Amino acid sequence: MTNRYRRHNELMIRIGLGGVDDEENPRAILWGKRLEWPMLLLAIWIILDWYLKAKGLSDPFFTQFTDWFIWTCFSAELSIMLALVDDRWRYLRQNWLNPIIILTGIPVLFGVDLFYSGVLRSLRLLIMLGILLKVSQDLRQILSRHHLGKTMAIAFLFLVISGFLISGIDPAFKGPLDGIWWAWVTMTTVGYGDLVPSTTEGRLFGMLLILAGIALFSMLTASFSVFFIERDEKEMVEKEDRNIQRIGQLEARLDRIEHHLARAVTTLERLEALEARERSPRQSEKADPSQKPSEPE
């Protein structure tokens, strides 16, 4: 585990969103990863709910339905993970924010107006930011693997979230469409200037969005560059593999030819040896004329 990954996990544990520990069983780790993306969709729902409440567009029935839906999702995730993990106390200790939201949200669900109702909704926004931080490790892995489609989808998701946030923070934006348009031209560092934040909070958010846009589009540019470079390298590697295969075939043919030549040379040497043996007695007889055949008596 690298130092960066360790620091990331320590930060998530401190804010109560540590997730599943690496020492847990494989099934719990697998389900922890599977539940990250549904919880990310829940984070988008929390942003939409926060925007509607900030603009006064939600009715009491929708507010109650949203509270029950969010509470049910948090309860379901906690129940599933507690049933799968081996060390439940460690999981609760590393994810202490989820039980707090579930327990403090029970009176609110039944219409009890308590002093911490607004704090509870702020905690939901904190949960949303935590979920985004939680999948940041997956985001880095995706970018490192150059999956351009997923990278573009994540960039678009970040763009939509930023549009909703700025439209709820700054009164200069009439609706989410204005916020999304402003987020688009801000992240791309184009800056038409037709929509400008009028509050200090909006300007601070714009500064952060500019930095995020520079970093994001730099990574996209690098990913596109690496994509085309890898594609060219892949073609070169395929050509080299074909050439290596042909060279291997030629070497195999040369080996077979050399083997046949070696056998032919061995056969010729044996034939020459046999001929030499046959010629040697004849030559010895011709070389000793004193030996004559005996005459009959």
Results as ranks from 00 to 15, higher is better:
residue 3 N to Q: 13
residue 3 N to P: 05
residue 11 L to H: 11
residue 14 R to C: 03
residue 16 G to V: 06
residue 18 G to D: 03
residue 18 G to T: 00
residue 20 V to C: 12
residue 29 I to W: 09
residue 29 I to H: 08
residue 30 L to F: 11
residue 35 L to N: 13
residue 37 W to C: 01
residue 39 M to Y: 11
residue 41 L to W: 04
residue 43 A to P: 02
residue 52 L to E: 14
residue 57 L to Y: 14
residue 59 D to H: 02
residue 61 F to L: 07
residue 62 F to R: 07
residue 63 T to M: 05
residue 63 T to H: 04
residue 68 W to H: 04
residue 70 I to M: 08
residue 74 F to S: 01
residue 75 S to A: 10
residue 78 L to I: 14
residue 82 L to V: 14
residue 83 A to C: 07
residue 89 W to F: 06
residue 89 W to Y: 03
residue 99 P to D: 00
residue 100 I to S: 09
residue 102 I to D: 02
residue 103 L to F: 13
residue 113 D to L: 04
residue 115 F to G: 11
residue 115 F to V: 11
residue 116 Y to C: 03
residue 117 S to Y: 02
residue 118 G to V: 06
residue 121 R to H: 15
residue 126 L to E: 01
residue 127 I to G: 12
residue 128 M to K: 05
residue 132 L to G: 15
residue 133 L to D: 06
residue 134 K to C: 00
residue 135 V to N: 13
residue 137 Q to E: 11
residue 140 R to I: 11
residue 143 L to M: 12
residue 151 T to V: 04
residue 151 T to Y: 02
residue 151 T to Q: 09
residue 153 A to E: 10
residue 163 G to R: 14
residue 168 G to L: 08
residue 170 D to I: 03
residue 172 A to I: 01
residue 174 K to L: 10
residue 174 K to P: 00
residue 176 P to S: 10
residue 182 W to F: 15
residue 196 V to C: 02
residue 198 S to Q: 14
residue 205 F to G: 07
residue 205 F to I: 09
residue 205 F to T: 11
residue 207 M to G: 13
residue 212 A to S: 12
residue 217 F to R: 10
residue 218 S to E: 07
residue 218 S to N: 08
residue 220 L to V: 01
residue 222 A to T: 04
residue 223 S to R: 02
residue 224 F to Q: 07
residue 225 S to R: 11
residue 226 V to H: 12
residue 231 R to M: 13
residue 233 E to T: 02
residue 233 E to I: 04
residue 238 E to C: 01
residue 241 D to N: 14
residue 242 R to G: 01
residue 243 N to C: 02
residue 244 I to N: 08
residue 244 I to Q: 12
residue 249 Q to P: 09
residue 253 R to Q: 12
residue 254 L to A: 15
residue 254 L to V: 08
residue 257 I to W: 03
residue 263 R to S: 12
residue 266 T to Q: 11
residue 275 E to T: 05
residue 276 A to V: 00
residue 283 Q to M: 09
residue 285 E to D: 08
residue 286 K to F: 06
residue 287 A to K: 15
residue 289 P to T: 14
